[in-house]
Each structure stands twice: as C-alpha cells, then as structure tokens.
Amino acid sequence: MENLARLVQDAARKLLEEKKVDLVIGFEKGSLPLRSTPCFVRKAEDAGKLTWNSSCENNLANYLRKKTEKVGVIAKGCDARSIVALIKENQINLDNLYIIGVPCGGMIDRKKIETILNGRELLASEEKDGWLILKGNGFEQAVRKEDVLHGSCATCRTGNPVLSDELLGEKVPEKEDDYSDVAAFEAKTVAERAAYFAEQMSKCIRCYACRNACPMCYCEECFVDCTAPQWIGKSASSSGDNLIFQAMRAFHTAGRCVDCGSCDRACPMGIDVRNLNRKLARDVKEIFGAEAGMNLEDKPALNEFKFDDPQTFLVKE
C-alpha cells in the first residue's frame, strides 16, 4: 500500500510537471482514523499529499462531470467503470481525461468497523499485510481487512480498472460473480421483504447523500425535487415515500450502476441502500446480458432495443 501511494504520487507529479493535465484528483489522508478524503492537486509540488490505502472509498468519477480543465484521475476498478459509463452518456470527454488506474483489492466498510468497536472510539489505525490495527483508549485490536471489506468490494469482480492510460502496481486476482445475497433476499416472502424495507426506510432523513455520492445521479432536477408534478412527498416521515425514492433511484440507475457502493457508504443512517441496486444489476445481467461500464463499445442496456429482448413482464395470456 505504501508503495502504491508512492507510485500514485510519482504518476501525479509527472503528469503535472509535463503539463499533460491541469489537475489530478486523488485521495489524501483524512482527518479521522481510517478515512481518506478526495484531494485536488494542481501543482506538481503538492503531489506528495496524495495517498493510497484501504480507506479511499469515494468514487472519484463523481467529480469529473462538467470539468473544463484537463484532468488526471486516480481510478480504482469501480471509478474506472463509472467513468466508462459516464463517457457513454456524454458526461465526460475522454480527450480531456487521463486515467491513472490503480488495481484495488477492496476498501473497508466504516460501518463494519463501528460494529466491531461497539461504542468504543477509534483514535488511530494502522494497515499492515492484510490486517488493520484499531487503536483507542485502552484497547488495541487487529482485524483482517477481508473481514471488514465493504459489501460492494467483497463481491466486486473488477478491481482492475477496465480503462486506464497507465496502470500502477500489480493486478489483483479476478473473482467470480456472486449474487447469492440477492437470491437469498428474493427467497423471502413479499411481506417479509416489505417489512424489511419499511424498517430500513424509516431511518431515512432525506439528506440525499446517497444520490449525491452517486456518479450516475446527475439529473439537473431529481424527480424527488419536482413540485409540479410532485411525484412523492417531501417529508421524511413516510417510509413509503422514502422507499419509492430509493426504488426509483435504483430503477433510474439500472444498467448504469456499477455497484461501487458509494450510496451505501454515504448514508449517515446506515440504511441498506445498495440492496435495490444489486437486485437490478443482477436482473440487467440476467435479462439483457449487460453490465454497466465494462467497455466503451457496448451500449447501455436500457438504451438499446433488440427484437429478441425477453418480455417476461408482459401480461400472460
């Protein structure tokens, strides 16, 4: 990891020195233990601020839309897929972009760490050979990184960026598709599923952190903000409306969502936001054989119509 951080700094410095880009977007050390924070570097001498570790959780593709400068971006697997998906939607101009790809073995889930700490406060942390050392007042505990990976990282198959101008470090091993979580949830009854979502959505405070953290949620006017017509209520007190917000968001990102988990991570209330996106990613793959942001050639699944598309949703007669 330290080595990768140095490679990231070197690559960024070089790009800025050679004036290939005006800006490099990466991560720097955050203000809290186990946190990194997005960092915007415009001078070569500032490249030393950049870092790389298991807490570089944000999807930096989110910062690339509407950029007029020439931008270099440090992209892990999910960032790269989002970038590809955004290029296909004409939101990013590839000519103005330089992608520094970093193979990613997964980022940690702060909420899992919180559960392990169970109320104790984390004051410092260290990362070493696949282990995290959590330190606080009167305790020190080691946890295996793979046990605290975020769900989206644990099931991610594309840790190696699908598109990059240069690739740093060594590639991570490929993984198999695993949608067993979706299948397990589908096996529940309608009432059980409804009860689960009602409970989850009752926590929602409508801060829209999920939406704003999502690189694909870039509508000028989100349907929840419309007043004429007003599609759903503005109050946070209706778990039904909160669920409709999440379901519509999931539906709108179907075939576009790369399951980076940003929405889930951003939620301050710990709602299982990703559940719906996973379901749709699985369905899109199963029904249309498509996955978002895997390459520049495939059209986004829902932008295309084929005569032999399955139509299982039609009324059976």
Binding site: V190, K279, V315
Partner: peptide, 20 residues
C-alpha cells in the same frame, strides 16, 4: 420494473404491461 416492484414488497399483480 415489475421485478423490482415485487422485490420491494408490492404484490406482482398490481402492475401489468401489455402491447396493445
């Protein structure tokens, strides 16, 4: 869409699609 609606706990028969 029908899939998702059922997934979030709405009975399948509430939404129908047809070519007419």
């Amino acid at each position: 869409m029908k899939n998702l609606i059922n997934y979030i706990g709405i009975e399948e028969d509430r939404v129908n699609f047809a070519w007419i």
